[in-house]
Amino acid sequence: MTWHPVCPLDDIDPEDLIRFDHGGRSYAVYRDPKGAVFATDGLCTHEQVHLCDGLVMGDEIECPKHNGRFDYKTGAARRAPCVTALRTHPVRVVDGMIEIGLED
């Protein structure tokens, strides 16, 4: 696994997310309402829509297409039409910079 820089911590508001693309794949990087950082795959498992246009509410991300929801901390699908879990990825903050850990 390699750590990749994503963006400064302050670039993501608490209870929001951004899109991060790397190696031809898309990821979503979140901050929860308290400011802690999380990451998942960036495309909804229902129909491959970018989650970055969705809405973070508490522990959940709502997909902008059909309002399906996932727990972005565990990846679990929480609301139809999402039934397949999202993959989660490790994140850390180093000197104010968010980093995501991706398999090589």
Binding site: H46, E47, K65, H66, A80, P81
Partner: peptide
């Protein structure tokens, strides 16, 4: 209908 309506939006 939850699923058919999702399709209507896609």
């Amino acid at each position: 209908w939850r699923w058919s309506h999702a399709r209507h939006h896609t």
